[in-house]
Nucleic acid binder design. Structure first.
Lengths: 109, 109
DNA sequence: TACACTTACTTACGAAAAGTAACTTAATAA
DNA sequence: TTATTAAGTTACTTTTCGTAAGTAAGTGTA
């Protein structure tokens, strides 16, 4: 039997994307720096999980968190270079989904 | 507040990839048609989940299941056109992981 | 002064999904 | 007869998710 394994770096990369919501959060941040509530409403994730995912992505060095001490305080999340460098990947997924996903397969329907 | 939503087709595509193991199973099948136990050992997934994921991927039209009535029976899983068309995406993830994931971030370590 | 409102979270808890291990079915091999 | 292999399935425990409510810090309104 073939016991060759998948490249561990690829495996790690895929494990980031294959955690629910993380891919969409990264994709949403491609639009530019955004605050918590904006991501929450456009991605459709709950605060509890968004909080968790943003912490993970910060630890992975994909997302940066910045506090602006205005009143009320503004906190912005943005992509680091590592995160921005996922853009070609996101473009590929965009074009794949455009070609292969039908309207009626969509979650809305 | 910005309430614009993410493209539903993209969302659906990401939901396929963001289910644990599916991305790795697809990636593994890029190597060519393979049987259950080969995928199981190279991806490192349990039979219970592999069985589930292959069924899902078949329903999505990404994977094809073929039975060869030899003795013992041989069952091969392979990618459909829809599945094969994810190759550019996988290549992008490969190159991103090659550039940004360090050895020590890997699951093995 | 008291009360409501907003942002960015956190806590609590029931439900769903994942992980592990043992079991099954069918056929051949020792 | 017993063992082995492939391709799963079942049973059970642990982890993760989803929903809703709560919190802290500051502002605005009555």
């Amino acid at each position: 039997m073939d016991t060759s394994k998948i490249c561990p770096k690829f495996e790690k990369a895929m494990s980031i994307l294959s955690k629910r919501w993380t891919g969409l959060v990264i994709y949403q941040l491609m639009e530019g720096p955004q605050r918590f509530c904006t991501i929450e409403s456009s991605v459709g994730i709950s605060g509890r999980l968004l909080s968790d995912r943003l912490k993970h992505l910060e630890n992975e060095g994909i997302v940066k968190r910045e506090v602006f001490p205005e009143t009320p305080v503004r906190i912005e999340y943005s992509l680091t270079e590592k995160g921005k460098d996922m853009e070609p990947l996101m473009k590929e997924l965009e074009s794949w989904s455009g070609e292969w996903i039908k309207e009626e397969e969509t979650v809305e329907n």
